[in-house]
């Protein structure tokens, strides 16, 4: 969980190769980073790579407004992945519930437990990012810091829900 720290340090890894490729936002840097991951590495280290490249290649990308825009675009990217992964897991878990019910099992519902988890995660995400915003008082850094926090947390949850173990 390196939400606030990664933001403070400016997340500079894995972006230089693609720096001159294209101005504005593209998710390529994040995807390239994820593909290059090996077992011992943490895929969460790829979060923010595209937003960072966007800041480097966009005119005014390092302004408060520019950072917020770039971070928000990567947030939207991860949000799409999160929603897709959630739907896949939900379909799988509900099918499993149906199967268990047909077998007469009294096992607790996986679909309900999934929904409870996701609700609890949303509350946790919001409260954590509120806390991170509070670090900035009324300062202008609060905007990008909040978007950065949302981006990291959304990405982490997307990667969690994309894990094979949840759909096997």
């Amino acid at each position: 969980m390196w939400k606030i720290l990664a933001f403070a340090a400016g997340v500079g890894t894995g972006t230089a190769v693609l720096a001159d490729e294209q101005a504005g936002f593209t998710s390529v840097a994040t995807e390239t980073c994820l593909i290059a991951m090996v077992e011992s590495q943490n895929p969460t280290s790829c979060i923010g790579a595209s937003a960072n490249l966007c800041m480097e290649t966009t005119e005014g990308g390092w302004s408060t407004y520019g950072m917020s825009q770039c971070l928000d675009q990567e947030l939207q990217y991860w949000d799409g992945r999160l929603n897709a992964a959630y739907k896949t897991v939900r379909t799988k878990r509900k099918a499993s519930d149906t199967e268990m019910a047909e077998l007469g099992s009294a096992a607790p519902s996986q679909g309900d437990a999934l929904k409870n988890m996701q609700r609890a995660w949303i509350a946790y995400r919001d409260a954590t990012c509120d806390y991170e915003r509070s670090q900035w008082g009324g300062g202008t850094g609060g905007g990008p810091a909040t978007v950065s926090c949302l981006m990291y947390m959304t990405a982490e949850q997307a990667l969690y829900l994309e894990a094979d173990g949840l759909v096997d």
Binding site: M117, A120, W121, A123, Y124, A127, T128, D130, Y131
Partner: peptide, 11 residues
Amino acid sequence: AQESWKAYRSA
């Protein structure tokens, strides 16, 4: 935030 994290861990 910490309270919400506890609920998240448990869920």
